[in-house]
Design a protein around this nucleic acid. Sequence first.
DNA 1: ATGTCTGAGACACTCAGA
Length: 268
Amino acid sequence: MASSNLSVATWNINSVRLRMPIVGRFLTEQAPDILCLQEIKCQEHQFPYEAFRALGYEHFAVHGQKGYHGVATVGRVPFHEFSRHDWQDNGEARHVGIELEGPGQGTVIENVYIPAGGDEPDRAINPKFGQKLDFLGRMTRWAETVDRPTLIVGDFNVAPLESDVWNHKALLKVVSHTPIEVETLQGFMDAHGWQDIGRQHRSAPERYYSWWSYRSKDWKAGDRGRRLDHMWASPELAAQSVAHHVHEDCRDWEKPSDHVPLVTEFDL
DNA sequence: ATGTCTGAGACACTCAGA
């Protein structure tokens, strides 16, 4: 079978309706084949389908809910929705899976928004933190059953490595970089042998961030970022990734998301 | 780092979630 090129992007967009102008700019400039969005913050009937179609993106898998969370995968290549997991077991819209039908036919792409987990890293006093760990636990049990080449991308809300945060020691007790989260995410990784494509192309300890808080007048001041967004693949699929890009410039665009998009190019 | 965004509900402003 002839090889085909495929590019996949992931971006926590923090309201797709409010952010459609910069989504359009990104798709025009980068033209990924597939774009996985998290935190679309709308119901399925409110999703801006026509704006995407006008940009050449005519394939959709939207799993939304009112106001919060929500994920959507859009493509300029064909696919069909494959699955919707509720790894928190509470009805929140945090996952959608697709299977490609054209280029990369048969490849599965899972789009996930792992819960942020609240402020206090203690499940006894902060139920959200427990829910985050339990979400990862259910993902881990699912990963043990994955038996075909799969790409899983999204906002994992965990920065596992020291070089994934601006200050390792300062963040050890901050949710997203605590040892229990890092250990739990590692358990998920080991359950399938996922390969961290970002770090495959930008090896630790090189600085790599994908998120900078809004709670700073100048997001560049001190470069206080974290790598919360990830693209992980089955070993055989990861070996077919030929390039990886972190679009930090998008953090400076008009009305930006606090996350920036990541893109991986594959030669399948 | 208790600061800055977003959407919902209600109609000027909180509140939750991140």
